[in-house]
Structures are given as structure tokens and as C-alpha cells.
Amino acid sequence: MADTALREPGAAVRFRGGGFLPGTSRLAAVAAFVGLILVWQAAISFGLVSPVFLPSPVEIASALRDLTMSGELWRHLSISLVRIGSGWALGTAAGLCVGTAMALFSLARSVGLPMVSALYPIPKIALLPLLILWLGIGEVSKTATIALGVFFPTVIAVYSGIDNVPRNLIRMAQSFDVPFRDIVWKIALPGALPSIMSGFRISVSTALLLVVAAEMIGAESGIGAFVLQAGNLMQTDQLMAGVTVLSILGLIVGAALSWAERALLAWR
């Protein structure tokens, strides 16, 4: 509808450019988090929710403290971290190589694209029984599951990242007779870094998810096994303590990646 005020002589132009510029407030985030914990604690303290089904934040903190003091938390956590670290490193290294090859060479692209499209959607945890058959119940099958889960998002991130490096940069380098290897190292990979870092975010989350799932299926130690065992014994405070540790782990990894992005991608 037309603004009638504009038709009147001397009327001020109405501001119409507001909105669509959402920002973030750290204070609001912290307040929401604290508010949630307070409501949660109050719901249990006033008997609205049974602590058997949902332990209070105070009980979870107490369980966390006990697990830390006894060293049990670190024992499980360290095992999970080694599995995540080795699986992620393997999957990332393979993904970087294959993704780069697919971005640079016609044959690798022709073979790799349909393969990745066909295999990426398979939930990798569904392959764990097969991997246990092939590799045994030990560490290798769990590491392989994580590596497989990490491999595909890394391939896609690297491939699409290099593919989206502006062609004019490649042509510029070619115009100076820069060797192929230098173009890859000095232009293609640095240019793909934003996409690769985004891929790392996905792959680290995937690794975290898969380590818990793999430990729940075939392990006696690790955070996933610990959470499952606590659930079976109805030790919900310990179960939630394990879940809290996973959440904190996710936050730490996310913060580390944000820091790395700021350091490596300051040029953006």
C-alpha cells in the first residue's frame, strides 16, 4: 500500500530499511544457558521431575567431580580421544589426498565423483559390524569406522574448495610459468582452505558422533561405553556426566577450530 504521508508536502520520509541484520549477544547466550540450568534444578527440587529419570545439575556436577577425582573419567576420555585422534587423522589425510586428486585430475574426478556420491550417504556406523569381521573387535575397527566417517566430508570439502578457487588465479600463475606443483601448493590448497576448515568442523563432529556409537556397540572402555554402562545400571547422574563431557569436548573442539580459522583465514 502506498505511504500516504509521502503525498503530503513536507512529510518526512518513513524509514523502511530496518531488520534482516541479526546480531549475536554473548550476554543473552550465557543468560539463556544459566536460565535453563536454573529451571532444570528448580523442576527437580520442587518434585516436578523424578531425579531417577533426569538428575539435577547439582547431582551431575557431583558425579562429574567424583569421576574426575577417581580418575575414571580421564581413563575413559583418554581412550576415546586416542580413537578420535587416530581416526580423524587417518580419514583427514586420506580425504585430503583423494579430494585434491579429484579436483585436479580428470580420471580421479571421473572415478571419484560417482563413488563418493554412492558411498557418502551410508551411515558409517552401519559398517562397524562388517569392519569388526574384517579387522577384529579391537581398536582398528573403531578407528577405521571413524576414519571412514571423516574421509567423505573431507573429500567433498577439499574437492569443492579447490574447484572453487578462482580460475583467474590459476591462469595468473600459468602466465608466469609457475610449475604445476607450486600452483597446487601455493594457490589451490591455500585457496581451498576456507572450505577445508568448514569440512573439518563437520568431520570433527562426525568423529565425535562415531566414537560414541562405536564404543556403545563394541567396547568396554571409552566415553560411549561408559555412558551405555551407566544407562544399563540406571546411574543417570553418571550417564549425564558422560554426556556433559561430550558436550564440553564438542565446545572445546569448536572453539579450537574457530581459533584456527581466525589465525589461518585472517586474509578473508
Binding site: N168, L169, S175, F176
Partner: peptide, 15 residues
């Protein structure tokens, strides 16, 4: 280098 280009969009490496 015998022939070098100056490009319309500069083609600088932003990093």
C-alpha cells in the same frame, strides 16, 4: 619471463 599479464580483476593472492 618474456610475456606477463596484467589482469582486469587483478588476480592477487588474497592470503
Amino acid at each position: 619471463n618474456p610475456f606477463t599479464f596484467v589482469f582486469q580483476d587483478f588476480a592477487l593472492l588474497p592470503w
